[in-house]
Amino acid sequence: MKKAVTEKDIETGQKDGMFLVSREMLLTPGAREFASRKGITLKYVAEEPPKAAAPLKSEALEKLIEDIVVQEVARRSAASAGAPAPSSAAPATTAAASEQAPPRIKAEAAMDQSVCSSLDAQCRETILNLSRPDSTGNRAIVTVVGHNRPGIVARISAVVAECGGDLADISQVILADYFSMIFIVNLDGLERNNLSFRIFKERLQDEALRIGQTQILVMHENIFKSMHKV
């Protein structure tokens, strides 16, 4: 679960005008604006600060994924002459490995089969996290509109976390006293908690009622995908 970082977190967490942002953090646009207003530098680190060894690993892993994608694509296109064009045309670059879903899925599958067994558990988990977010088809778009007040992001994200959801992205606009926020929430964790989409939606809506003057809409991403993507 990524942690949503708000203005308050930056204010308390900054040290000598610098705030360390890890992979596990998701900055709200409000927090970014606050940092730039206060002159706080946002320093991006590849992992949680205590795990100092991780950045190296992460680079190595990206390279590893890339290699596997290349191998896998080569193997499959050799195996079947009618391999789909995008895969066979996928260039052996990091961009291809990180942006295109099909090679990623292949990479993940290949990981599971062979390479993962040789890696230690922590590495394996990191690889899957790297390769998973864009390949999932199970996310909700949560839209929150209402009267602005402190703590809304924290309260909404707390409910999301409680249900097992994982914040994948946040977008936020504040106009005078009103705000409009869009969260993208990965729902894979809901099943592990045995929660249905309906319960997830109801919990968020209950929270909106408790916050007051706030409207919250929860919709599965497929409706947006089907209406806007071909």
């Binding site: 864009d134 996310r139 778009i141 839209t143 992205d169 977008s171 606009v173 869009i182 993208i184 809409l217 919709m219 991403e221 409706i223 947006f224 209406m227 806007h228």
Partner: peptide, 17 residues
């Protein structure tokens, strides 16, 4: 973000309003 703010708002507007 996978979807643009406009796409999300358009869908919501179509359904809600």
């Amino acid at each position: 973000m996978l979807f643009s703010m406009n796409e999300i708002h358009e869908t919501i507007r179509m359904i809600e309003a």
